[in-house]
Design a protein around this nucleic acid. Structure first.
Length: 798
RNA sequence: GCCCGAAUGGCGGAAUGGCAGACGCGACGGACUUAAAAUCCGUUUGUGGCAACACAGUGUCGGUUCAAGUCCGACUUCGGGCACCA
């Protein structure tokens, strides 16, 4: 078959007929199938795009044939650093390069033959999209979910911008790999931490891969423990957070983070110089140095003392950078006997180490002992199990007014200010009189000016654009300045799935009633690398918008599927440096998109991925040629009455068995087994090998069954079978269970659990019949016991 | 260090606790052909045997069960995530 020719023929026809258009009147049957939209970085679609979009399209086409009204849009996550970095290198404006890349990718996506409805296309870099990103930001601001604060941020010196916690990988910038440093800056934050608990609980209600849910759980990092307030000798107090309140009697010193505001106040004159020096050193360190676990712990005594509220003991106050300012209260109680870090520190600086927990069975007396056990040397909790002791201590602290139960989270607020050009401008005006003034909604969008010097200078590029930055205050009319930063691109992508069904709405970001009908996304497919970024942000934004009354559902993505990673032929991750990158175009241009997609279906377990092997592609073409031959043969026998009833029954069994499995497999993203079943049916048809109406009927079913995977080829063969309407409008074949009933079935016989052979019995044979057949087969008179699982197995215990 | 996954022929990969290796690639054999390609039909986990067959076999070691690739416990290796989170 000339696949290329066939594809262009049908593609033209489908586009002219708008066969993939979403029918708004059928929302009762809607399925919102969404692939994570792509970043238009390179000029071409890569293998990952094909694997994600192409195969999800197979799933979408199945749903359509099953009678659902599928909404499957496509668009581009078009803002972001790569386009800007590319511009800095080449001088080509990010807008120009992005638009060019989008045009190329649109063309390729159309050639993929995927059933996207392009009427709903969105591009996040266009004013009619980012207008609503800005609107979203303003709503968050109005509802107290966006705030500007001075905070330590992750600064990438190479990208000259702040990046989010989630974008720091091993202490380095996720984008460029530079070592990230810590910097105090005024930044906009979205208060995702307000939703920490709900983001955690919501995970139980959604059909997502367990692994991804676990990653989000760990990222949110809920930690239940307690707060303990220590009074300072000489006045004042501070709190520490602990998950091991039961060890409070073993606390021999306390430690503040170098950035803790109390440090300056309590440091004695004698210690001041040493503390100052230590603070400077700590500030200079990058996160990667500072959080290195191999590094020896360091710290300095402040000269101050605090009182342990549980026993009135005076303990020294130290400063050490192993305590993080950004977690808990930025201060810890040190119990060297039961915490490895405190132990190491105490040993180095000669601080007391006193055991207060013993192992329950007395087996382990090494320190530090970090397991749970039984309290010792701890006054009123002596003998209590760790969990009880925790409660007892926290209750006592509550009575004393010195603390109590407390929960903390690892999750931090989401920093969204970026000192870069190619993003959505933050719609805020800073007025010397009125302070922070949001841009009035009627003035949106705040348009991103084209002519800007975006070379890195350590300052936001927009700050240098006078005509942009200088503005009148909307409140008092006086001179004011725009916020010079742009929003993290993850803000753009945190709500795009809401915009798709509303893509043409010029009045609103999205219409509430319509969005409630169309959302949540039924099936969302994309890479697992977004587990703690996009997928968490999107959930947060959905919940925030719900609380503002703009929508009425809790979770944006009901079911989530991650495609696996396709590796290079060498079994390693594809990369330019390894030179093992596979370009799909090399194969698509020869074999066409159907063959290539079917190869991707067949060669991998979808969620696992695996190494690419070009040998599999011609074998799929060979298979489809084989299909063409048997279909052609069957057409000749269209009106011929079948002669052999038994053979027909066998063929019909194969047809119905395939129908039963194929749809279910595609529905489960088990594309490889779906293709295997199609191949089995084809083999059965070759075995049947008589050109008659039974073979023709099998052909028609086979074509329908394979239509979601190879739509062009199926359409061509369907036409050859004499049909004028599209096969894609056919109902997906269902299994006729009656055709699967056989008069006799083959049942395996085991002797003492060991397979010995099979016997033929009626499918509804009772245990006695089955048992007798098995004994006869084994040549036995009797058996101690026979286990018969109907239709499955007969196990004889002799 | 902690938390997840995964491990099955020469290869990609299948198997609701019930015949391990579906389906395909590769390899080998046969048919067709002057020949080759293409096609069609076989064989293909290992060991022993002419054979029927026997034994072994899903990373390792134990366990539960009539029955374990699948469940439980301990470990090994690889992949992913988190990591001085108190």
């Amino acid at each position: 078959m000339d696949y290329i020719k066939i594809e262009s023929k049908w593609r033209k026809k489908w586009e002219a007929e708008k066969i993939d258009s979403f029918d708004k009147s059928r929302t009762d049957k809607k399925k919102y199938v969404l692939e994570m939209f792509s970043y238009p970085s390179g000029a071409n679609l890569h293998l990952g795009h094909w694997y994600n979009f192409g195969l999800t399209d197979v799933y979408a086409r199945l749903l359509r044939m099953q009678g659902y009204e599928v909404f499957q849009p496509m668009g581009f996550d078009a803002f972001g650093l790569p386009a800007e970095n590319y511009a800095i290198k080449t001088g080509i404006h990010p807008k120009d390069s992005t638009e060019k890349n989008i045009r190329t990718m649109e063309g390729q996506l159309r050639n993929m033959g995927a059933s996207f409805d392009w009427d709903y296309e969105i591009k996040t870099c266009e004013p009619d999209y980012y207008k609503w990103t800005q609107w979203l930001f303003l709503q968050l601001y109005k509802h107290g979910l966006a705030e500007e604060k001075l905070a330590p941020v992750n600064w990438c010196p190479s990208c000259s911008t702040v990046i989010a916690n989630e974008q720091v990988v091993d202490g380095c910038c996720e984008r460029c790999g530079s070592v990230v440093v810590r910097k105090e800056m005024r930044q906009w934050f979205l208060k995702i931490t307000k939703y920490a608990d709900e983001l955690l609980e919501g995970l139980d209600k959604i059909d997502w891969p367990e692994k991804t849910k676990t990653m989000q759980r760990n990222w949110i990092g809920k930690s239940q423990g307690g707060e303990v307030e220590f009074d300072l000798v000489g006045g004042g107090s501070f709190k520490v957070f602990t998950t091991r309140a039961d060890t409070l009697f073993g606390c021999s010193y306390v430690v503040l983070a170098p950035e803790h505001p109390l440090v300056d106040k309590i440091t004695t004159d004698k210690q001041r110089a040493a503390i100052e020096e230590y603070k400077v050193r700590a500030a200079q360190q990058s996160d990667i140095d500072r959080t290195s676990t191999v590094k020896e712990k360091t710290g300095v005594f402040t000269g101050a003392y605090a009182i342990n509220p549980i026993n009135g003991r005076k303990v020294p106050v130290w400063v050490a950078d192993y305590v993080l300012a950004t977690y808990g209260t930025g201060a810890v109680m040190a119990v060297p006997s039961h915490d490895t870090r405190d132990f190491e520190f105490a040993q180095k600086y000669g601080l007391p180490i006193e055991r207060v927990v013993a192992s329950a069975d007395g087996s382990n007396d090494d320190l530090p002992f970090t397991d749970y056990g039984v309290a010792v040397n701890s006054d009123f909790i002596n003998g209590m199990k760790t969990s009880d002791a925790k409660t007892a201590i926290l209750e006592r602290l509550a009575q004393l007014g010195k603390g109590g139960a407390k929960t903390t989270y690892r999750l931090r607020d989401w920093s969204v200010s970026r000192q870069r050009y190619w993003g959505a401008p933050i719609p805020i005006i800073h007025c010397p009189h009125c302070g922070i003034v949001p841009v009035p909604e009627k003035d949106l969008p705040v348009e991103l000016p084209y002519d800007v010097d975006f070379h890195p200078s350590g300052k936001s590029p927009l700050a240098g654009k006078e005509s942009y930055i200088n503005v009148k205050c909307p409140k008092c009319g006086g001179d004011a300045k725009r916020d010079p930063d742009t929003l993290d691109t993850f803000v753009c992508s945190s709500w795009y799935y809401l915009r798709y069904p509303n893509a043409t709405n010029a009045e609103k970001a999205f219409d509430t009633a319509w969005t409630d009908k169309m959302l949540p996304v039924d099936t969302y497919v994309g890479g697992a690398e977004h587990a703690c970024m996009h997928l968490l942000y999107a959930r947060f934004i959905t919940k925030a918008l719900r609380d503002m009354g703009y929508l009425h559902f809790d979770e944006p993505f009901t079911k989530l599927v991650h495609q696996g990673t396709i590796l290079g032929p060498d079994g390693k991750r594809m990369s330019k440096t390894r030179g093992n990158i596979i370009n799909p175009d090399d194969y698509v241009s020869v074999y066409g998109s159907d063959v290539f997609k079917m190869y991707l279906c067949f060669a991998f377990s979808y969620t696992e991925g695996g190494p690419f092997s070009k040998d599999g592609i011609p074998s799929i073409a060979k298979y489809l040629d084989r299909v063409e031959r048997i279909v052609t043969k069957s057409i000749e026998g269209k009106g011929v009455k079948p002669a052999d009833g038994k053979k027909v029954a066998e063929l019909e069994y194969a047809v119905n068995y395939t129908a039963k499995c194929c749809g279910a497999d595609i529905g489960n993203f088990s594309f490889n087994t779906a293709v295997a079943r199609l191949m089995e049916l084809t083999n059965a048809m070759y075995k049947y090998d008589v050109a008659d109406s039974a073979l023709f009927a099998a052909s028609e079913t086979l074509i329908k069954l394979m239509a979601p995977i190879v739509p062009h080829i199926a359409e061509e063969l369907w036409e050859r079978c004499g049909h004028t309407a599209s096969v894609l409008k056919e109902k997906y074949p269902e299994c006729d269970e009656k055709k699967l009933i056989k008069s006799e079935i083959e049942v395996p016989v085991q002797l003492l659990g060991k397979f010995k052979g099979t016997v033929m019995i009626a499918p509804d044979a009772d245990e006695a019949t089955a048992s007798a057949a098995a004994l006869k087969f084994l040549g036995l008179e009797s058996a101690k016991k026979v286990i018969y699982k109907t239709g499955k197995i007969i196990n004889v215990i002799a």
